[in-house]
């Protein structure tokens, strides 16, 4: 097993599949009356969050607790982090506390890579800047596999602000490794340069959502911040929604079996309408549930729970 999970690129097909299979086993625990396994008893998992992300932190916390790990939440608010302690000094503190795993969310791309140089424990990237969010990609892959029965050969459209999206980067890397075909869709201003060369050869780009929809198995809508229009990435929220938002009529262009995903939190009315978000095609609630199982699997495998 790998030591850290920093990027979707850290996972080869076998490792990714092992995580997804393990997550499926973990999911059975959630159905039990006592939702707890003793696998990580006596191990310490630190949630180091430099950004407010209650949903991600709670998901990791639930995952660690269901494996009986001791969980320490170290958040930027009300701790030495806010007083300007450096990442390195914080790392040395966590090291002294004997952290077996550090789950880190950070506004700066690459911060988890830096952290991994300074601690002995495993580092799990829970979202770094505009770089990656590998456990989100794993839970997305898990959800696709659960709904559609496979990943190889799937056609997946990832739609929206790809430029600023850590979810998109991790999904392109992981889905390509697992044999799915990814098409990135958005206005040209929000598609980063040289994306296929940068992430995975065979990744397609389209500026026309309507043309892409009839041929996909999965459409994944990314959150688009309204503030992006201040930087002239698009003229107005209204024009963005009209060209790249997923509404009812557009959803009906999808093949019968196709699913609609969103990593959350949603901007209802911006990139997705309530009709779509609440439709039977939508996997948004399942994604949250699956997130806990996938994070249990990641912590379990990184911390060698399978070797004990």
């Amino acid at each position: 097993m790998i030591r850290h999970l920093l990027s979707g690129a850290d996972l080869d097909a076998d490792t990714a599949t092992e995580i997804l299979d393990t997550a499926a086993e973990m999911a059975t625990v959630a159905g039990r009356e006592i939702k707890k396994l003793p696998a990580l008893r006596g191990r310490t998992v630190v949630n180091l969050f430099y950004e407010d992300s209650t949903r991600t932190r709670i998901s990791f916390e639930a995952a660690a607790k269901r494996l009986s790990a001791d969980v320490i939440n170290f958040s930027a608010k009300g701790s030495s982090v806010a007083k300007g302690e450096s990442l390195k000094d914080t790392a040395l503190t966590l090291q002294a506390m004997g952290a077996d795993a550090v789950v880190v969310r950070h506004p700066a791309s690459g911060a988890p890579h830096r952290l991994a140089n300074w601690v002995d424990g495993s580092v799990v990237n829970a979202g770094d800047g505009t770089h990656e969010h590998p456990t989100q990609a794993l839970l997305d892959a898990y959800t696709m596999r659960a709904r559609l029965g496979r990943l190889a050969g799937l056609s997946v459209a990832v739609v929206g602000d790809v430029l600023h999206s850590r979810v998109a980067r991790s999904n392109v890397l992981l889905l390509s490794t697992l044999g799915a075909k990814v098409t990135l869709v958005g206005p040209p201003t929000l598609i980063p340069v040289d994306i296929a060369g940068a992430l995975a050869p065979g990744t397609d780009v389209s500026y026309d959502l309507d043309a892409v929809l009839p041929d996909v198995d999965v459409v994944m809508m990314l959150r688009v911040q309204r503030e992006r229009m201040k930087d002239s990435y698009f003229p107005s929220a209204r024009e963005y929604s009209r060209r790249y938002g997923l509404d009812g009529p557009r959803m009906r262009r999808l093949p019968e079996h196709a699913i609609v995903m969103h990593p959350g939190p949603m901007n209802r009315g911006m990139e997705i309408t309530p009709e779509v978000a609440d439709s039977p095609r939508s996997t948004i609630v399942e994604q949250v549930t699956n997130g806990v199982s996938v994070r249990m699997a990641v912590l379990y495998l990184l911390l060698g729970g399978n070797n004990r």
Binding site: G129, T130, H131, R166, R169, P192, V193, D194, I195, A198
Partner: peptide
């Protein structure tokens, strides 16, 4: 901007 705008900045999620 954090680094040269190109393939590597896209991969690393750093502003080009």
């Amino acid at each position: 901007a954090q680094m040269h705008e190109g393939e590597v900045s896209t991969r690393l999620g750093l502003i080009g």
